[in-house]
């Protein structure tokens, strides 16, 4: 199993047939394409396509359950703003009335389009972080010749985030072992709880910062640019199929953007 940024994915997953840089291009293209699509049906198909991709890539779909509350509240938020603050309408069409609240057709259709679009955009982000490891992200950036300092910063950040998630779980499990029930807590109690997480985590961070700095100093790390060998990059070869897929993705993305901006046909 590969430990990705968010989950575990089998090494035999078809997604790993592509170079990490190709996967990054896919993320960037699909992270923008839904913006140029105005029809909810088309963006809905993009979302379904991502569900299929998750399945084909052998990501355990049950792991996505943790995002359900967020996705539901995002939807609620969009719809509520359009229901309660519909703004001025040229030709208002009343669809229904829930008590004193009128439901107008135009604002609701705008809300639906925005919600499905945001689902498609979020699916692209989640798919990328569900299927890529820290090293994949680094290799992708280095393939595109992003300066070493930037990629090192990103790598260190992702590594440190992983370490802090472990620290966070340790603190959380210690609290659970002492009978703390987070689910029954109110809003302000949760804020207090977060304050309790922050202080030990920051104290750990300061100590860890010193350790990492000393290790970097011992290894002769310099902030100045220079010639470096790249072991990771050499382990992940770029194939002809990657060129083909990357060119195809960029061309398809460009075409969708052009169609969306010039003809509004999507």
């Amino acid at each position: 199993m590969n430990k990705t940024v968010i989950a575990y994915v089998p090494e035999s997953s078809p997604v790993y047939r592509f170079h990490p840089a190709t996967r990054l291009v896919f993320f960037v293209v699909m992270g923008f394409v839904p913006l140029f699509i105005s029809r909810p049906l088309v963006n809905g198909l993009v979302v379904l396509g991502f569900v299929g991709l998750f399945w084909v890539s052998r990501v355990n779909l049950l792991q996505l359950r943790m995002y359900v509350p967020m996705l539901v509240t995002v939807g609620l938020f969009i719809f509520l703003t359009y229901v309660f603050f519909p703004g001025k309408m040229a030709h208002p069409v009343l669809l229904a009335r829930i008590g004193p609240i009128p439901l107008w057709q135009h604002p609701l259709s705008l809300a639906l389009a925005a919600y499905v679009r945001i689902l498609a955009l979020l699916a692209a982000s989640l798919y990328y972080f569900y299927t890529n490891r820290e090293r994949d992200i680094l290799v992708a950036f280095r393939k595109f010749r992003v300066p070493f300092l930037v990629t090192y910063f990103i790598g260190l950040t992702l590594r440190v985030a992983g370490m802090f998630i472990e620290d966070f779980h340790v603190i959380r499990e210690a609290q659970l072992a002492r009978g703390l029930d987070v689910t029954s807590m109110g809003f302000f109690r949760r804020i207090q709880l977060y304050a309790m997480y922050m202080v030990p985590m920051l104290a750990i961070a300061l100590r860890r910062g010193d350790e990492i700095t000393n290790a970097l100093f011992a290894k002769g790390f310099s902030l100045r640019p220079g010639q470096r060998t790249d072991y990771l990059l050499s382990k992940m070869p770029w194939r002809a199929s990657d060129t083909l897929v990357t060119v195809g993705l960029v061309a398809a993305g460009g075409l969708v953007a052009w169609l969306g901006l010039s003809t509004h046909s999507l």
Partner: peptide
Amino acid sequence: TAGHFVMAALFTGIGVVVGTFGSLAVPLGF
């Protein structure tokens, strides 16, 4: 020094964890 660089990365890492868990703990949309 490298220490500043490391602390920036560490703070970013802490922010990722705190921001992610904060958003997931009390999800209220955007």
